[in-house]
């Protein structure tokens, strides 16, 4: 299935609160048997990671970060899981791909169940479902109300990356991010110097598909501003 309704009550597994999440199953290499604790926390997320292309390309670029893909579709999540298992098996000697994994979840509803305040440094939103109809706009992954929740889990200076081949959606996402008091757009010079932007343009399956069809790709990146003084 190409789409999934984010408002449905899916049978999902999610922790009651971030402290209850057992990350050792997803990143066993970063679990310390002696202290019974993780040596690292997830800092990079790919929301709606699809077939996992971005995760796989980010993995060697950010060896010191744990990277998590979240995907709402069961079949797609299973596929990415298998893909990562295979990559880990084929790269046992180099300990490659131990820092990426995928989770089936509804990020629009349960992101704060997984991450503490300011835990993330980067969030990727690559080729999200455009939800063209106006009455479906609340189902979009970028809305002014959800941005406040993303701002909560992002640390100050953290980055939101967006890319889409649908111009209307690009305008919508950029508009909402620009209007949100906790985000500031990064300019084209910044974009051209950022390695993630390059990876995002070319790594994802959706990105490759657009390339084959010679379609446009619209990128917008935003920095999480410091939280202002509470009035």
């Amino acid at each position: 299935r190409a789409h999934s309704n984010p408002f449905s009550d899916h049978q999902l597994e999610y922790p009651e609160k971030p402290a209850d999440m057992d990350w050792s199953k997803l990143y066993p290499y970063y679990y310390d048997e002696n202290t019974k604790e993780m040596t690292k926390k997830v800092t990079i997320t790919d929301i709606g990671c699809g077939f996992g292309g971005l995760l796989i390309d980010l993995s060697p670029e950010f060896p010191n970060d744990l990277i998590l893909g979240m995907e709402i579709r069961v079949q797609v999540t299973n596929y990415v899981e298998d893909r990562i298992i295979a990559l880990r098996t084929n790269n046992v000697e180099t300990k490659g791909y131990q820092n990426i994994n995928v989770l089936r979840g509804n990020a629009m509803k349960f992101l704060p169940n997984f991450f503490e305040k300011g835990q993330l440094s980067k969030m990727f939103f690559c080729f999200p479902d455009p939800h063209f109809k106006q009455r479906k706009h609340k189902a979009r992954i970028i809305t002014n109300t959800l941005l406040s929740e993303y701002a909560y889990v992002l640390k100050e200076g953290g980055i939101i990356y967006t890319i889409t081949d649908v111009e209307d959606l690009h305008i919508w996402m950029a508009k909402h991010l620009e209007e949100h008091p906790l985000f500031e757009r990064l300019d084209e010079t910044w974009e051209s110097n950022d390695k993630c932007v390059q990876i995002m343009r070319h790594a994802t399956e959706e990105g490759k598909k657009v390339e084959r069809k010679k379609g446009d790709k619209f990128v917008a990146c935003f920095k999480r501003l410091p939280t202002p003084e509470i009035i």
Partner: peptide, 22 residues
Amino acid sequence: RDEHIKVTHYPQTYIVKHWLFG
């Protein structure tokens, strides 16, 4: 309906203080 209680600043409603999980 999703077990969530959210505490948000007012009038700065774009700043979430925290969730009460339990």
